[in-house]
Design a protein around this nucleic acid. Structure first.
Lengths: 383, 383
DNA sequence: ACTGGTCATCGAATCGATTCGAGGCACGCG
DNA sequence: CGCGTGCCTCGAATCGATTCGATGACCAGT
């Protein structure tokens, strides 16, 4: 015997089936694809032969080569997967995207983004060589993005979510700026004069700390910068703290810093902020926990507003005041943009609406003699 | 003019480059792949021609057809994406998987599992027709799984995580049973006699409520059943509540039910459990919140133990007593199993160790005169 | 009876790369 | 000067399907 393997019966191909059915390959193909006229009797014969041979349908690789399409959409995960999905925001968008693309038979390929800071020009090998019809860049796209450059070099069309406008690429965004401005105005209407801000990361550098004007100036267009602008459209915050990631623990750290809490645990300064506005709900949740740590009642002593409109049952009985954004719809819009792009439509800019949803974490400023509004107090629970 | 399109300069192929460089296609291929001997001067010429033509490397589709490999690993997400990834457990495993596969140049394709209950024989179209070299089934694989059946019909090799043993398929699991038994013994050693149990979903039916013996009997081999067994290896719980998903809110509901909390809010029954053991940390977190709602001090009035060993900073100052499982390693082991399978190795069963990590949520039973152990109280913080 | 038309089927080209065996050229050694 | 030996390069087959144009059979109309 020549080879030792027990003849693993090489998978049948369309040719095998055609021969067994006594028809030509082209007829067999027609029978399977449904395109073109095939006599019922012939189709039956082909199908029967296929079943007998254990042929389960055309090999996708052959089809893909012929059609020039892989049916795969690459989704570039900005950060490490583990971190990107620790905020439910990313998960929900991805869910909407996967669902929408699934309806068109498209699959989602997960592609890790650059390992760390922008200086690193390294790009995941998948970006360079994986088969994909379109790539979706959602989290933290920079204009000088190495991934973006590599993709356009390859000629892979790109859909951008929440990033800079790129020529020829559809963009899906939400009204970050006006949305957070609404929340800010809500706080101001409640009489708050000293408002602290907890920001999303401005870039992938992983730094955190007080936000400086220079840092704002050099920042790229990201959700964070839009939200910064929206906040300032209403009022300059008395303090602003940049976080390294949109996670609860960083929100807590930021809140402690903004409130002037000393490590020793002394009393808070008299001119501490009476309200905090956070660029994300997870950050706001962290602020809420910090308030509990410090013994501050929310919203009596401190008001907290977030952004995203997540369902965070573990904050109960508190319900965050937050700017709701339609996350699944955002994913769906990204998916639709992909489909449109593939069908040759002109790239569009989609901008989704957001809505301020008032919860139980915002109320009149403690030092305001006559609060401007009380409507936010509707269903404040009592423990 | 015949066609109207502004001649979008069809992407160059290897043939184009070869011609431009004045070499044959095979030589050009050799120059790119690095296999086979090519004179430096020739390689340079090819590369220069490629750069001039904007050729960025071999078309993956052609390569894939030739090699018969797509370089894609399908990962079947049992549930809806949104829900599957709301528990960080899934995310961390996926992260480990993606990282490991990435080292071998393999990409991960996300495939939604069956839409809902087992009766539905529907399978995502990607399962039927997407190109993939291997599929990974991680969450909630049943033996009669329609997805599993479809894949094996197609001849796609499968790697199983946390499920039944399937012939020819590598399996990666953790020591669920002994792990949770350790936690259970810890509670018993602390003097707890009435222990309530909060279980993971036994299947994808979405039902929840008191766990009945019949339900246990008819359950498939899943992490939930292993953990059920582990708990009972030590002691029969006084009550067991099945949840519909491993999420905080369901843990809270289950805990309220097990503790006998009336909707009206009366006092708890005297024979309420003094400890709760949950099959996951998110469920345990929900139980902790329920305890806070009810005014029960943890661990003085109620001990709570979980499973997973997640980092849950928002539970601070509490630190869950939990059975730590190496999630990223589990993902890595799945990835390694995939790689081994592709290189033709015999399918192995990998079982990872877990470890009980004692936090601040377990302590001596309130009614135990002489607690068996106090070591769990080491770093209990005081607010 | 011849022509026009329809319908089912087939042959062959094509997608873009990889790979194997063969061939050519130059150099070195006898 | 002739021949053997490497080292490069090339041609052609191959992976598995899709698709276009051609062919042949059969029917109806004039």
């Amino acid at each position: 015997m020549t080879t030792r393997r027990p003849s693993p019966a090489p998978r049948p191909t369309l040719a095998t089936v055609a021969e067994a059915a006594g028809v030509s390959v082209s007829t067999a193909s027609l029978a399977f694809s449904g395109a073109g006229p095939v006599a019922d009797e012939t189709r039956d014969r082909v199908m029967r032969a296929a079943k007998e041979l254990g042929y389960t349908g055309p090999n996708p690789l052959g089809r893909q080569l012929r059609s020039g399409r892989s049916g795969i959409v690459g989704v570039v995960i900005g950060d490490q997967l583990r971190r990107a999905f620790r905020d439910p925001v990313g998960v929900q968008v991805l869910d909407g995207l996967v669902s929408t693309l699934g309806l068109s038979g498209l699959g989602v390929l997960l592609i890790p983004g650059a390992p760390s800071a922008p200086p690193s020009r390294a790009v995941d090998p998948l970006v360079e060589s994986a088969a994909m019809d379109v790539a979706v860049l959602v989290w933290g796209v920079g204009r000088g993005d190495a991934t973006l450059a590599a993709l356009s070099r390859r000629g892979v069309p790109v859909v951008i979510g929440e990033g800079p406008r790129v020529a020829g690429a559809p963009l899906v965004a939400i009204r970050d700026r006006t949305g957070i401005a609404t929340a800010m105005r809500h706080l101001v209407d409640l009489g708050h004069e000293r408002i602290g801000e907890i920001t999303l990361p401005l870039d992938a550098s992983g730094r955190s700390g007080p936000l400086t004007p220079e840092r704002i100036a050099q920042a790229e267009k990201t959700p964070a910068t839009h939200r910064l602008a929206g906040v300032r459209d209403v009022r300059e915050p008395v303090g602003s703290w940049e976080t390294e990631a949109s996670l609860v623990e960083h929100g807590r750290t930021a809140a402690l810093a903004l409130l002037g809490a000393c490590p020793g645990g002394g009393s808070l300064p008299a001119d501490r902020p009476t309200a905090l506005i956070a660029h994300s709900d997870l950050l706001a949740a962290g602020a809420l926990l910090a308030a509990r740590d410090l013994g501050l009642a929310v919203p009596t002593d401190l008001s907290i507003a977030g952004f995203d409109g997540l369902d965070l049952p573990w904050l109960a009985p508190a319900v965050l005041t937050s700017v709701y954004q339609p996350l699944a719809e955002k994913g769906a819009a990204l998916g639709q943009a992909v489909i449109d792009l593939l069908s040759g439509a002109k790239p569009q800019v989609t901008e989704l609406d957001v809505e301020l949803v008032i919860g139980t974490t915002t109320g009149p400023a403690p030092d305001a003699a006559s609060p401007g509004s009380r409507r936010a107090r509707a269903d404040r629970p009592r423990p």
